[in-house]
Every structure is written in C-alpha cells, then in structure tokens.
C-alpha cells in the first residue's frame, strides 16, 4: 500500500495522459469514422473501395503495430512532425495512430447503424430532392448514430483502455508505463496495479452506463 501512496502522484500524472489521449482519440476517431462510413456507403466505387480497404487493413492490424508504424514509419521515415518538442510530438503521433485505429471500429459500428435505417427513409429523402450527402447528413446518419450509441460506447471504452499501449508509439508518460517504471524500482505491487485498474473503471464504467441510458433516451421510435 505504501508503494501506491509513494508513486500515486506520478501515476496520477500518467493517468492524466491516458485521459488526454482518450479525449483527442474520441473526437478524432468519431470524425474520421464518420468520414469512413460515408465513403463506405457512397455511390462512388473508388471511395467505397478505399473505405473498405482502410477498414479491413487497420481493423485487423494489432494496435501496437499501428502505433509503431505511426512512430517509425510516418514520423521517423516520412518526417511527419507535429511538434519540435519530442514528448509533445510523440503524444500526437500516438493520439493520431490511436484515432486512425479506433476510427475503423467507429466506422463499422456506424455502418451497422445505417443498416437499421429503413431503405424508405433514404428513398423519401432522395424523392424530395436531397443530394446523397444531404440525405446522409440529415436523414441517415442522425438515425444511424442513435441506433449505435451503446456500441459506440463500447468502442470508446476499448479506446480508453488502449491508451495504455502508448509506449509502443514512443510515448512513455502514460500510467501503464509509469507503473512499469515503478515495478522496475520496487518490484510488482498489487496495490499499484489495482489502483490503476480502479482509476480506469472510474472513467469507463460511467461511460458504459451513460451511453446505455442515452441510447434508450434517443432511440428513434418507428
């Protein structure tokens, strides 16, 4: 227990990094996932194919490899730089890698939501003269989102927990890496381990309950 108390401030700072990664990841992956699903259902074959390939490649690649690719491939080899400060740069490298990965899951959740919207909704939208993008934006996606709030909650919970592999993308300041550093010094400590688990549950459990509640509240009645 004293190990936990000794390392708590450091671990808390690390956990804050997990939260920061999660916030950036949630926003970016929801936007990118929405763009991807628009591509996957678009009438243009090239866009559809590109969306499908992206989702199938990224969704089936282990996250640690996606992050390593972001750090080594995009950043080191291709020179993609977010900031001249190395720690800030690697934060964004990991945040973008995580978002790119999570977006594939957001896309597929949304696509299953689109499948719950009756075909007649799109036909009615087209029949009053809305273009494809308008009907997607105003009619189809709003209903699809509401249908998949709970699954999207699960995707977000998974994403939050995935922030603990940030070190694979070269970002060594999150709570999981801090834990490893503490263990290196004092040996494995059950209290530290449990402390981090509880911290994550304090964030993820409410998200699960909240999205469940929201899903019921916003359900589209047909």
């Amino acid at each position: 227990m004293e190990d936990l108390i000794r390392y708590a401030p450091d671990l808390a700072l690390g956990f804050l990094e997990n939260i920061k990664l999660s916030i950036v990841g949630a926003i970016t992956s929801l936007i990118l996932g929405t763009v991807l699903v628009a591509m996957r259902v678009s009438p243009t074959p090239v866009l559809r194919a590109a969306g499908t390939i992206y989702v199938n490649v990224v969704r089936n690649t282990p996250l640690t490899l996606v992050l390593a690719f972001s750090a080594l491939g995009l950043s080191d080899q291709l020179g993609l730089v977010f900031s001249s400060v190395p720690s800030v740069n690697s934060f964004w490298i990991v945040a973008m890698g995580l978002s790119a990965y999570t977006a594939a899951f957001v896309c597929e959740a949304l696509r299953s939501g689109i499948n719950t919207v009756p075909l007649g909704q799109a036909e009615a939208a087209r029949a009053i003269g809305l273009t494809f993008m308008q009907s997607l934006r105003m009619i189809i996606l709003p209903q699809a989102f509401r249908a998949v709030i709970a699954p999207l909650g699960s995707v977000m919970i998974a994403m939050i927990k995935n922030t603990t592999v940030a070190v694979a993308g070269g970002y060594a300041f999150d709570s999981a890496n801090k834990m490893k550093e503490a263990f290196d010094q004092v040996g494995a400590s059950i209290p530290i381990f449990l402390g981090i688990v509880v911290a994550f549950m304090c964030v993820t459990l409410p998200i699960g309950y909240f999205t469940g509640w929201l899903a019921k509240r916003l359900a589209v009645v047909r």
Partner: peptide, 25 residues
C-alpha cells in the same frame, strides 16, 4: 442519370409511398 440534375428533377416530382416513409427522427 445522377447528381445535382437528378436531385433537382426529383424536387419537382412529389412522391407518396405505401409505407409513408416520414423522417422518423
């Protein structure tokens, strides 16, 4: 065949469906 011109044409032709298809949300 498609695109904006088709959308414009559709806006000039009303359609009433068997299953109403009112926007549910």
């Amino acid at each position: 065949a498609e695109g904006k011109a088709l959308a414009r044409l559709r806006s000039e032709v009303g359609m009433v469906f068997q299953s109403f298809n009112l926007f549910a949300h």
